[in-house]
Design a protein around this nucleic acid. Structure first.
Length: 597
RNA sequence: GGGGCGUUAGCUCAGUCGGUCAGAGCAGAGGACUCAUAAUCCUUGGGUCGUGGGUUCGAGCCCCACACGCCCUACCA
């Protein structure tokens, strides 16, 4: 039993999130967290909306809103979507809270005082009309190498060369068409080279565990070779102020989002603790070196979680070449494991909102059961390599595996019991075949749990479904529907009791993957339907006097332990309604119609 | 340009330390059964493991090259 921090990537709030995002971090982190709680660990699962940065400014301008208004809208949508997916956050918050601002500034101050920031002058583009930094990708012009017009500031798509936007011929802003101004500007850089040794030691130690996914650890070690200082401030007027005299008051200098968003894991833990009434409760997950932390994200975020975030933690804790002292947040734990997934594609193509190659979480959930999607992600998601979401495969997985396999077992079990006893029957003398199937179902706790703890969820759910197949086979072999007459009554009861026990076992085993239907299945077998606790959206006050905002939270302590719980003889079982909805194959064409080009 | 990943049966994918590794699910074919959402159960899988070399007694699994796809490489997040 240990403290486990489930740190889940912070969705960027410039719009609603599509299923590729939640397939990468949302579902896997929730499966892991639900399992770890049932296995007896003290889990703290945190995340929130990432709301600062240039893209939100641009999206707000386009929508005619202030950045805060846009963030408010999108934060609510994203939070509602994640809750509707059943993601069991202890706290899902946001980066525009006063608490978060204060924690980020404390981190900055600690890193600054320990000497891990270097001030450097850089040469970059700004928008003359707004004074904001113009990121390279928002500049285009004629490529100085191949003379192709329309090259992006960072790279020419025509010749593939990397470019410096200052070299572009006739550069223009893609945002408003104006000519960017190139200026010299001062910024704080995180002195990553001074932290490289500590980072290397940490990664080497992590590599030795053999637990990280091979490509994640390899990639992380590789990027250490070319480590260099990275800017942690920006010329922008939407973000967290730099807490230093002369900077604090400057409206166009803010902390870079990557000194902002990743700190959310810590600030959300602190906010969670403050909301529980024990303001120091978060320290058990952050200051105790025995505590474990798992970070869930897509592969595009590996750099920030295996290099920049640990570097910030080391710098704040004074653990780099320059030494330093401990500050008020104490010595902070580095990640135990960076659990990165790959990317989901959509019908063989990259997700693209502009090209309408997309399905948003909200749209999917308006038409399909959350567990059908969770089943797809768990069994066919981008766990170790890119994987493809297709509507035909979604329908097939749902109908042929989820409904036909697990759904049917539940349904036939409840039907047989309802029809013959109307309640869970008592078991008589067990035969070898009864013992065998009971053993198989109980063994699933061990095999499936072990696989989930090692982040092999595809194998885990496959193992659970294999066990489902064994129970289906048991039912077919024993043919309880043929056991008629008083002389076979006891045997019939025994067989149905055994099946019900197996279904109850497998329902628990599947509950991290399929929390909604786990409750339905429990009810179908006479239970109260409270197997899998669900998150709640709560309109919360800002703890420090700012505007209120919706959060996701919940009490997940009621989840049963990860082991067989003997079923209760005599619980009433009525004729069931199917737990899972079978999909009409016509939805494939309907959904493909909705996709663009 | 640099770094990394992937390419295994019609489809989606497993294959940890090189030697029953040539597999699973689905689809397809045949059969059984009828409790169940025409669900379930049984039988049925010969695919040059992307291509070409190499190391080895032996290679999807190690090395090299090539092809195709993808990710990172950016003051995007």
């Amino acid at each position: 039993m240990s403290r486990v921090l489930s740190a889940v990537a912070w969705p960027y709030a410039n719009g609603p999130r599509h299923i590729g995002h939640v397939a990468g971090f949302g579902v896997p982190s929730d499966v892991f967290s639900r399992y770890m709680r049932m296995a007896g660990h003290d889990v703290l699962m945190v995340s929130g909306s990432d709301e600062h940065g240039t893209p939100i400014l641009i999206a707000a301008d386009e929508a005619g809103l202030t950045p805060q208004q846009l963030a408010d809208q999108n934060h609510r949508v994203i939070a509602e979507d994640l809750a509707a997916l059943g993601c069991s956050y202890d706290l899902y918050t946001r980066t525009t809270t006063r608490n978060h601002h204060a924690v980020v500034q404390e981190m900055f101050t600690g890193v600054y005082e320990n000497g891990y920031f270097v001030e450097q002058t850089t040469y970059g583009a700004i928008s003359p009309s707004t004074g904001r930094t113009l990121p390279d990708r928002y500049i285009e012009g004629t490529c100085p190498i191949c003379k192709t017009p329309g090259a992006r500031g960072d790279q020419c798509d025509a010749c593939g060369n990397q470019l410096d936007p200052a070299d572009l011929i006739d550069p223009v802003s893609k945002i408003n068409g104006e000519t960017p101004e190139f200026i010299e500007t001062q910024h704080f850089f995180l002195d990553l080279p001074a932290l490289a040794e500590a980072l290397t030691a940490w990664l080497d130690e992590r590599a030795e565990t053999g637990l990280w996914r091979p490509n994640v650890i390899r990639f992380s070690q590789n990027i250490l070779k070319e480590i260099r200082p990275r800017a942690m401030t920006r010329d922008i007027d939407w973000g967290i102020a730099v807490p230093l005299d002369g900077w604090r008051e400057n409206p166009t200098k803010k902390l870079y989002v990557w000194f902002d968003a990743v700190i959310g894991y810590l600030s959300a833990s602190i906010e969670w603790a403050r909301r529980t009434g024990d303001a120091d409760a978060w320290r058990a997950w952050w200051n105790d070196p025995e505590a474990l932390s798992y970070y869930f994200m897509g592969k595009d975020n590996i750099t920030f979680h295996s290099q920049i975030w640990p570097a910030e933690l080391l710098a704040y804790s004074g653990k780099g070449d320059k030494g330093g002292t401990e500050h008020s947040l104490g010595t902070l734990n580095l990640p135990t494991e960076v659990v990165s997934s790959e990317f989901l594609t959509m019908e063989g193509r990259k997700f693209s909102s502009s090209k309408k190659i997309v399905i948003y979480v909200r749209d999917l959930l308006s038409r399909y059961q959350p567990d059908a999607f969770r089943y797809f992600v768990a069994s066919a998601g981008p766990e170790n390599q890119d994987s493809d979401f297709t509507w035909s495969e979604f329908v097939r997985r749902t109908n042929d595996e989820l409904v036909a396999g697990w759904g049917n077992l539940v349904n036939r079990t409840a039907n047989l019991i309802a029809k013959n006893f109307g309640e869970i029957p008592a078991a008589g003398q067990l035969q070898p075949e009864d013992e065998a199937v009971l053993a198989a179902a109980e063994a699933a706790f061990g095999t499936v749990g072990d696989l989930i703890s090692r982040h092999r969820q595809k194998a885990a759910i496959g193992e659970a479904m294999r066990a489902v197949g064994e129970v289906n086979k048991y039912v077919s072999d024993l043919e309880p529907w043929k056991m008629k007459g008083e002389d076979q009554r006891e045997r019939l009861g025994t067989v149905l009791h055994v099946v019900a026990q197996c279904v109850a076992d497998l329902n628990l085993v599947l509950s991290p993957f399929l929390p909604f239907s786990a409750n339905d299945v429990d009810k179908a077998l006479g239970g109260t339907g409270e197997i899998a606790p669900m998150p709640q959206i709560v309109d919360a006050d800002d703890l420090d006097g700012g505007d209120g905002y919706p959060i996701i939270t919940g009490d997940y302590t009621t989840a049963p332990s990860w082991q067989r719980h003997p079923i209760t003889v005599g619980l009433p079982v009525a004729k069931p309604t199917p737990v899972f909805r079978k999909l009409d194959t016509a939805v494939v064409e309907e959904e493909l119609e909705r996709l663009g080009g």
